[in-house]
Design a protein around this nucleic acid. Sequence first.
DNA 1: CATCTTATATACCGAACGGTATAATGGGGA
DNA 2: TCCCCATTATACCGTTCGGTATATAAGATG
Lengths: 195, 195
Amino acid sequence: MENRTRILECAKDLFYARGYDAVGVQEIADRAGITKPTLYYYFGSKLGLLKAVLEEGLSEFRRMLSQVMDAGLGIQETLYRTAAAYCAFFEKDRKYYMMFMSLFYSARENEAYQAVRPYVMEFYRASVSIFERASGQLGNMRGRQEQFAIGFIGTINHFLLLEFEREEAATGGTPRIGEEQIRSVVGQFMYGIFS
Amino acid sequence: MENRTRILECAKDLFYARGYDAVGVQEIADRAGITKPTLYYYFGSKLGLLKAVLEEGLSEFRRMLSQVMDAGLGIQETLYRTAAAYCAFFEKDRKYYMMFMSLFYSARENEAYQAVRPYVMEFYRASVSIFERASGQLGNMRGRQEQFAIGFIGTINHFLLLEFEREEAATGGTPRIGEEQIRSVVGQFMYGIFS
DNA sequence: CATCTTATATACCGAACGGTATAATGGGGA
DNA sequence: TCCCCATTATACCGTTCGGTATATAAGATG
């Protein structure tokens, strides 16, 4: 099983760095120190490899998210902990997060997008449900749940994108994202920039 | 010059639908009804073609943005008009906007990303400057201009992404984005979701 | 020992990739 | 008329693409 893991790791690194379409199967095999038939033995196709890469890193994130959702907290704390889960996931594996994010926004008819689409919808619906459950605290939302949900995901993703750029620019190590930073971002989302 | 324009148009359509790397030069040429050497005569390389596509649709958007920036308005109205400019640009050419957006988030070492990077930075800096100029109204921002700027761009992009998905799902025509919708999104950004 | 399964490599497939050498075409000016 | 220059096509380049037929090696099982 060691080869399988190494192939997944190398594929993730390359997809992250240059994107699914720009990376050839041969290059992945070379970097993993195996040959193409071995790769195809485990994953069947290039797309199958991508799906395996995607699935691999997601189980823990799912668990963290559902834990937050099931805690029965108010919307403020739910949003904060959700954001914290996203940040923790990002910090645990930046390459995975960034790869996922770029697939999130990739062309609709690209086969790689088709592969991430189910996961995108999964997390989007989870986000929508946060706001639906909180309609008591938010008043009549007149169908704005979706706008809130997408705005929330967008805010987090862009915060992490900025964080990523800053880390790339920084010379030293990568400091952990502070709790107060996350509270600041979520606070900005909830109360606006004048708060 | 008619061929040149048609090549640009077809390239945009295909890059939008399937992404830069997944589209071959041959396919673009076929669709435009010309041959590869003609394409290379005008654009020199595939990357040159992408750069030309990018540059093509941007001049008007630049003009709209700088007009807003030079109006000397308060931050609220500036943000609203900036958002409106983004929305107008989106509505004028959805394919271009979505293509640009997916390039925005694509892998850092992908050559297509290198091509959009300058434009991304251009609009990012413009957004930062909005918040820098408004420090009087926002109080001591302690370096949060960047967070505001990226959050603002993220909010708009995700709103338009949602809009795009809704339009795709809708059966009828695509209604224009209403002024009150834009005000709602910008209001959410400025005053939070409880407003 | 014989056999079956799992895992791996060699060597190859046809097609598509980005790109180009070269020639033909056709209109405008000398 | 002649040539020039912009434009376009034919036919090709070597390389890489995703994928596979087939053989082999190693370990477990009878």
